[in-house]
Design a protein around this nucleic acid. Structure first.
Lengths: 156, 156
DNA sequence: GGAAAAAGGTTGATCCGTCAACAAAAAATG
DNA sequence: CATTTTTTGTTGACGGATCAACCTTTTTCC
């Protein structure tokens, strides 16, 4: 019924749909929604919590500052995420001996259980996405991302 | 100083940096920040306001529902954006004759002035970004986005 | 033509991400 | 060693995006 109206839209001008930044942001929103859904169904974790767990899993007990450096998360958001995770018993916070401003966070058993519960689905998603691209396309994609990032760097 | 620590991070595991969804989301965040900055400096518009103006410019006076269909904006957010723009005198809201639920929005002179003030910088940015990619890469990029969107569609 | 379904819009709640201000501790510098 | 600078983390504020509930009007369908 409205298909006709929608069809007409694209005819004489292409305001948004073809713009690359717009496409990127829509795609990103959809990918986020998908990840959030998978996490919620498999484990109830938020994406921020998942990211923190991935970092702990990869690097062992680490200080928040290291997560900020490696993941580019905002430190404010990270601070809140950590506090919530500790309250839920997902992570343990130990004061650092060497630096009295900081502390080391690590997964509790409960945290690890949830992490392992979410991991298969998250990995499957990642490989499914990677798998829909041929090797050539994947390489091209990374090349494009590199270029765009360089362009952003150049523009300060 | 910390280059050494960061260097070590990537050695035995690649938790975030290489994952395509992560790269996409970082790039998207940076692009958004850049657009927001350009808009703010050139015209004081928000991205949502800019998008509404682009749609009006392309399609003439239109009902909000059409913007929702064409841009995939959330109708709640759009409703608020429109209210704010009307309050700032950027757009005019006329009741629709044919549909008493709806109305038609169009740019005021003031709105058009701001739009024209922002447009050159926004277009320059768009072509600068497109220009940093070769034609081949740009085609590959669109192909990849298509594939990823299809993959998302397939996953419901 | 009347009941049910769909579409248009508004509003409120909530979450996420970013930014700025701040306090405490550590590192750098002279 | 004292002072300045940097790093770390916490907190508050704000805009953006999403979701759900709701009301009104239009469309569909019998």
């Amino acid at each position: 019924m409205r298909a006709e109206a929608d069809g007409k839209l694209g005819v004489y001008n292409i305001p948004l749909r073809e713009m690359l930044t717009y496409r990127l942001s829509r795609l990103n929103a959809r990918l986020n929604a998908q990840a959030a859904k998978i996490l919620k169904e498999s484990s109830g974790l938020s994406q921020a919590q998942w990211r923190v767990m991935v970092m702990i899993d990869a690097y062992g007990p680490i200080p928040p500052a290291q997560i900020v450096r490696a993941s580019l998360m905002d430190k404010g958001q990270l601070s809140r995420t950590i506090k919530a995770m500790a309250a839920q018993g997902l992570i343990r916070i130990n004061d650092s001996e060497s630096d009295h401003r900081s502390h080391l966070i690590s997964l509790t058993d409960r945290g690890r259980t949830l992490f392992e519960r979410a991991r298969p689905a998250m990995q499957a998603r990642q490989s499914q996405l990677a798998g829909t691209l041929g090797g050539d396309d994947r390489a091209a994609f990374h090349r494009v991302l590199d270029r765009l990032e360089q362009a952003l760097d150049a523009a300060e």
